[in-house]
Design a protein around this nucleic acid. Structure first.
Ligand code: MN
Ligand code: MN
Ligand code: ZN
Ligand code: ZN
Lengths: 147, 147
DNA sequence: TTTCTGAATTAGACAAAGTCCAATCATTGA
DNA sequence: TCAATGATTGGACTTTGTCTAATTCAGAAA
């Protein structure tokens, strides 16, 4: 795992190390992702990046997140059919998803593992194993839908 | 697991057993889902139901799939950010997802299990644990994107 | 410092999946 | 048979994400 890259120079170094040219927009997006290590959707990142004054377009946010994924800076988390979340933590771990609040939290890799890997069909290769623990707040059963 | 419900009377009984009024449209949709026990998206179901002659609207397909989920007749499979898949197999099992072809296949519950359940935060309740094995055909790396 | 060029960014049109609503229709118990 | 209750419908709408052609930028070279 990378050292905590809060400062501009550290973020620039981080992008460069991944073969990414450090433009202003990419640094803003990296800032948002790595400052607090949360799971954010593209639209949340767009909003946070443009909080003070508009400076990054929707297209660039999507382009950049795709690039960050390809270069292994972030990873996609697919738990909610409505949107993809982006995870700045690329080390192996799993997720707990609160279906009432939409909150995603990490489960350390050590605290949960499979007792067997499935045999793959001829010529297939594992890309990754996602484990998602879906949880609920029983109080919130009937209504409490958030997004 | 339910006995194979191919015939109309069997499908009607199945819906009734789950507290669902067996309308023509719901029976058509159940037919499509249970005939071949596949993982289908809403749009695929809509297309199959209206293959011979149009008889079911998009709104009804979505309404019905939601109802079937609530009543435990089918379950959602969330592996592809573009669409939800519906699984007529509600017994515990996991999934293998081919990220190149989009193909989803079942992994029997027995052949894959966790060596520990994570401790849940105060007052949370597990709704389910999804394990998704993402696989790839190495030949198809650079290009072979299908949807 | 200035120039140049490929790469990056952008606005806004577009697409796909899914939701919603008010009007209409069907099922079913009486 | 006949309401009344529940189900279905077309189509407008929303949200998330993609695409494109025009513009701007970063940074290497001079
Ligand atoms: Mn038919
Ligand atoms: Mn979508
Ligand atoms: Zn995570
Ligand atoms: Zn399945």
């Amino acid at each position: 795992m990378e050292a905590m890259p809060y400062s501009r120079p550290a973020l620039i170094a981080l992008l460069r190390r991944h073969g990414i040219a450090p433009t202003h927009q990419r640094l803003e997006i990296a800032q948002v992702l790595f400052a607090r290590c949360q799971h954010l959707s593209a639209e949340q990142i767009l909003a946070q990046v443009n909080e003070r004054h508009a400076e990054t377009s929707k297209a660039t946010v999507y382009n950049t997140l795709k690039l960050f994924c390809e270069r292994g800076l972030v990873r996609e988390v697919i738990v909610d059919p409505k949107r993809v979340f982006y995870d700045p933590n690329t080390s192996p771990h799993h997720h707990m998803y609160n279906i009432d609040s939409g909150e995603i939290t990490d489960i350390p890799a050590e605290s949960l593992s499979l007792n067997a890997m499935p045999e793959l069909p001829e010529g297939m290769v594992t890309e990754g194993v996602d484990i998602i623990v879906r949880v609920r707040t029983p109080d919130a059963v009937g209504q409490g839908r958030l997004g």
